[in-house]
Design a protein around this nucleic acid. Sequence first.
DNA 1: TGATATATACTCACATTGAGTATAATATCA
DNA 2: TGATATTATACTCAATGTGAGTATATATCA
Lengths: 314, 314
Amino acid sequence: MTATGRQSEDIPAHAFAADLIAVLVAVTAGRPRVMTIDHGAALPSGPFAHDERSLQSGLRTWVERQTGHRLGYVEQLYTFADRDRATNGVRVISISYLALTRENREEAGKSGWLDWYSYFPWEDHRSGAPRHLPDIVARLRAWTKAATVPAQRHDRLRRVAISFGLDGRPWNEELILQRYELLYEAALVAEASRGRRGADAPLVSGQSMAFDHRRILATGIARLRAKIKYRPVVFELMPPSFTLLELQHAVEALAGRLVHKQNFRRLIEQQELVEETGAMAAATGGRPAKLFRFRREVVDERAVIGTKLPLTRA
Amino acid sequence: MTATGRQSEDIPAHAFAADLIAVLVAVTAGRPRVMTIDHGAALPSGPFAHDERSLQSGLRTWVERQTGHRLGYVEQLYTFADRDRATNGVRVISISYLALTRENREEAGKSGWLDWYSYFPWEDHRSGAPRHLPDIVARLRAWTKAATVPAQRHDRLRRVAISFGLDGRPWNEELILQRYELLYEAALVAEASRGRRGADAPLVSGQSMAFDHRRILATGIARLRAKIKYRPVVFELMPPSFTLLELQHAVEALAGRLVHKQNFRRLIEQQELVEETGAMAAATGGRPAKLFRFRREVVDERAVIGTKLPLTRA
DNA sequence: TGATATATACTCACATTGAGTATAATATCA
DNA sequence: TGATATTATACTCAATGTGAGTATATATCA
């Protein structure tokens, strides 16, 4: 990946290549999954064709052809054109997208759908704070102490404390990108020491990805975690009918946190986001649950699913 | 596939040009201003140079050179590559940005700084609903009736009602883009009939712009109106010291709505976003006001300026 | 039968928010 | 000089929203 950036005489100054990168998300059996290629080493990406009508349609046709999934929701994430994004001297502009699709139980096992927490194990707080989180924090603390100037040290300490919810601060699941960036700066993830040498600090657990794809994934997760709080996008990930507990589990999978069951139902019902199908779920243990469907009519009415999700404290 | 290596030697197949477009905002004397070129006919834009480090740095250097302003805050808006964005057969990718800068009283009059409400007169509700708003709504209603199928007619009616706060619905200042798009679809803005002929419905007041620049401006305003509610970005538009009323006026200029003065102050103070400078403002009428400065340290702490702004009802 | 698991209804304390009243401190002008 | 306008700032209050918990209903399974 040597980016010479040298523009030869024959390449016009405005020659760029355009790439689309997708963070394609589904929730299967209560687990948040992301579509990957190359055995989980990269996000699916491909060139933006010259004959496509628009970026969005380019992404749609390409992803739908490749995965056989209809995309429910598509949203632009970010556009990069950093100098190291170049191949054969042609500089690449990468436009990343977040796309949501319905789960597909037949495909659940195979293909490239991976639990996104295998890339960010420290982000799953559904069973309390992960066991290795104290160790991560300890190593970040060590890194803050290695700062050269006191001001820098102070700044690092503050960022770590905010991002990881230290000193009585609450854990904020939306800060996933900030946490990843701290780990990157502290060279605790494999991507950070790529290309360099000697930097062999023991790494934090969690699978890495090629290029900056793990960073893009973090961006997508952050956007989604923020969005479910004020837009009814969870439903794009649900099957046509579902129980309220299944819906809750989907939200919890995305947020990486547990929500208060009774208050969650209150929220959903008072927003009139769903309606009963009349049928009941095949019993899965206790009292049978009603099946609901999403009231799609309500999408543009309800800008908000609720200012906040009813999270549980502990 | 980026991950698996690009094998094409033929550069022309993916030759794109890259353009940066800026929605550069300032607030001068309580008026929201946007930087324009060509006597207000377009947003400033320029090619992304091959030798720039990144998109963001490209935008910064270019805007700062062109306007002499230091950019306080920069945020990516959206990337377009629609087929009609082509020059000499070279397809153009446009990356739009929102950028905030401090007011500059010397420049207030000259240069291309224009009140953004000259492009969206119906968006300024600081002195109540604009006089011509009923007329706009009436013309949109007429357009809904012109729908061919009943379902379409119903859909249009609903969108108009939501976007313009009809039937008891509240006015939502963040829906500026949706409102503009409705006016575009109804061919009530000049841009809509460009290139076509015969479509000479009487237009709604408000200056138009070249290309889709007015749409990009609406996107930027929408983003900013949403952002001031949960991030302390207003301060990027303020001088180093200011009174609370000046701060309030800036917020009102952006939101296009009045806020409740006492509650606004309560919000600002309880969030500890500002501190007294010790000095007082040169009296401008009544009791002299304390001067405040923004506590920049607090930026990453306070993710939120308050879940909502304390708007006034009437 | 009772242990267990889920569904669902309701209560309650507390914080937040929208709105308004009251009072203080200055400038302006008749 | 004193009335009036204008802005600043401190409080109060009702309504609503939010976090948390209790209670009860309806299943399965040992």
